[in-house]
Amino acid sequence: MSLVELVDIRKRFGAVEVLKGISLTLEKGEIVAVIGRSGSGKSTMLRCINGLEKVQAGRIVVDGIDVTAPKADLNLLRQRAGMVFQSYNLFPHLNVERNIMLALKLVRKLDTSAAREVARAVVTKVGLADKLHAYPDELSGGQQQRVAIARSLAMQPTLMLFDEITSALDPELVGEVLRVLEGVASEGMTMMLVTHEMNFAKNVADRVIFMHEGRIHEDGPARETLLEPRTAELRSFLNAVLH
């Protein structure tokens, strides 16, 4: 069975239909980059997968959990499907260590010393072991985003969703975050990234999904799709972002 399954999902904000029938499956270990113009529905689709947005029609199943069921256990779903946001969203009143420990203690029910151990391990993995006791406002954007990734990884999700996580960063800070992502990818994590980093998509993703006006317009192997787009829409999009 596929890890993620979307069947003809539709999502409206007021009168505007943002997702006009999206169907896709994602296998375990797959790394999928979702690209497209702003307003094409990329982020909304991602947010539907972990239940931050409700769909009006269609079915979403993630790791055996029916997200669209009326009584879906969204908190369990979100333990399995971690998410990192464009604006980092660290908790400003907690230092790095406690940002990471919070959900470990409350959700995974680890005791303090076990949670501290995990926090230290994941922060080391993203190269910020020396920042364990820093507060978010003492870190650069790139460092905050690396902590956000570490915080999500600490929950040991089976799937990671990344929503334009380098879009708010100064250009010189993008690289450090992408390197962390590559590290996560190399460990076999199933990943779905909404991104504008075409080189990253080409080199790290297995598959690229191009969204256009609320629909999946192209879906194929990353290199091939990006180097030889089949549709005029993707070609013009790539021209716009690459030049």
Partner: peptide, 20 residues
């Protein structure tokens, strides 16, 4: 976004309110 960040980590509504 702070509510969402809490939700994305699997915190319940009460935990998001109380701890975040």
């Amino acid at each position: 976004r702070q509510w969402e960040a809490g939700a994305a980590l699997g915190l319940t509504y009460a935990q998001r309110l109380g701890h975040v």
